[in-house]
Nucleic acid binder design. Sequence first.
DNA 1: TTTAGCACTCTCCTGATTAGAGTGCAAAAC
DNA 2: GTTTTGCACTCTAATCAGGAGAGTGCTAAA
Lengths: 350, 350
Amino acid sequence: MPQTTNPHQLSERSLYLFKSLVEHFIADGQPVGSRTLARDIELELSPATIRNIMADLEDIGLLHSPHTSAGRIPTVKGYRLFVDSLLRVHQLNSREIERIAEELNPGQDKQALLKRTSNILSEITRLAGVVMLPRTEQQSLKRVEFVSLTDNRILVILVINESEIQNRIIHTARIYTPSELQQASNYLNDMFAGKDLPTIRSEILKELKRMKENVNQIMQTAIEMAQQAFMNIEPRDDYVLAGQTNLMDVAELCDVERLKKLFDSFNQKRDILHLLEQSIHAKGVQIFIGEEAGYDVLDNCSVVISPYEVEGQILGVLGVIGPTRMHYERVIPIVDITAKMLGSALNSYN
Amino acid sequence: MPQTTNPHQLSERSLYLFKSLVEHFIADGQPVGSRTLARDIELELSPATIRNIMADLEDIGLLHSPHTSAGRIPTVKGYRLFVDSLLRVHQLNSREIERIAEELNPGQDKQALLKRTSNILSEITRLAGVVMLPRTEQQSLKRVEFVSLTDNRILVILVINESEIQNRIIHTARIYTPSELQQASNYLNDMFAGKDLPTIRSEILKELKRMKENVNQIMQTAIEMAQQAFMNIEPRDDYVLAGQTNLMDVAELCDVERLKKLFDSFNQKRDILHLLEQSIHAKGVQIFIGEEAGYDVLDNCSVVISPYEVEGQILGVLGVIGPTRMHYERVIPIVDITAKMLGSALNSYN
DNA sequence: TTTAGCACTCTCCTGATTAGAGTGCAAAAC
DNA sequence: GTTTTGCACTCTAATCAGGAGAGTGCTAAA
């Protein structure tokens, strides 16, 4: 009988041993030696036999010893094999599911919901939770409102898509009365509501050019204000992160230098954002282990993320960041289910 | 000649030595010994003399040796004396002032301005910057708007005071047309604009009681929606913090345990908030050194804060958090001037 | 093919030693 | 009386050696 479909042509037994070793290491954090493993497993094998097998596994690149007389720990490649082929994902218990559901009830503003999602992810996994904000390639204007402040300053409220709100203050040449503002916003709502922002911008520019011919005062006021209001919409924060401090308990990362680099890159957002964006078109949970992600700061870290979607359209990505040595069998279903539940929570906004 | 007005009856020379020692320690971070100090100062004194004086200073409680054969470091009481009586505050150079001014231009939403302020504080001091949000004991409604979303959900936008915006989603029994919503918001604006939230709440409750007698449909709709909208306004974030990671470079705090506790208390906000609130009625820059603040997590930390005000009315508090061993002579004027500049930036909102 | 035996390696802990820094005190110098 | 010198003393931090423990790899036996 051939060794069937195993990757690396490994025997069942080797795989079993490897799996046990990884599980042991994830639980313990200490390099696992042959004797320990011999005690640990179901099979009756002597440490020597296990040593031989471990040597093979090391040759293939699945294991690695920190030094001669330490046990062995999985390499990135090893984790990869473990996660892809050996891992048996847990069922979540219903209490946890309920907890997530409770936290993810809609009925709050979208931003707050995402923040809560990030929080719950971090609390339930005891790692750092991250939720990328819905991709808004399509930002369509729902409504615009003006509120006059003192002097010639006007507060502009833009409601974009469903329930996203942007506000900014603009300055006008003269002071407008509330009813003028009302007329202006009515005009703009009639003209632009339902259109997406790039379109609106180009139409505003067109209107500005035509303006000389047209002397309608309301229109002119409205367009001038719209120009200020729509032209430089600041990009929002790109993701929300929660539970960073959980990572400070993790032994592997327990060095201030490393942690600082990691936290700094969380704040800068650039690297993490790139990583999250890679998954925006993936289906289901994706896992980046250690250096796989391609960012030095994420050495010894794994990222478990999943896109979340509403009616088949992917809106964003969420997940957790933790040490490579994490409880994948728990984390994966948590990320998975949270993505699904966030999707349906967001669904109720449309 | 008596020893004049010095605190602790210290001679000029002792004070000079003490000041030099503190400055040396702040620059260096190492306990300062008699020999080092002898080299460092202007006066020609032998290490032995300095030792005698340092022993006196230690007796009074201004200095402390980590152990017999280390130099000496200032105690909290020592820092207090230094900061209150010996410190010569730097003039800020104009480049720094310009930098702050640039960052604090208004013309953005208030929240963003405060965030930027916090950022600039942390960047310029290389410590953690904190800005408490304007106290809104007085929250007066400027305007309320309704935007209908899908189904029976309605987005409520509350403009409170000047330029603060709260939004929430409410659910209604039936679906309203835009014009109904318009009428409702007109009604509520007429009724409540300019009043403060507690008043509004109590009036809403009164109206609800009277409602049976009154069958005006618009009013009923409006009041029902108002009830949902105004009743549980979530308290906003209470302060914004920036540059936490700067604290990870500080040698004194360089222990992951401590840092985690500190960061956790930043996230919980409770302790820090209490501390900030203590200064809300103070005038000018206040400094809490180490245990003075009364919170364990702030051991070895100092907090330099100042209220900021608009037209004589204190709105909030801002400042920085760093190690006790910080460059007070630089940090104090930075906090001071930033508070003033934030005040005038906010002034332009009124 | 598996196991037992064994020499070997590496880490970690302990204890001893030393160099260095800094102190405190007593006696001498100013 | 104040300042300095000289000196014994203390404490830390670094270095080194030695031993225990864990684990390996290899060889030979089962």
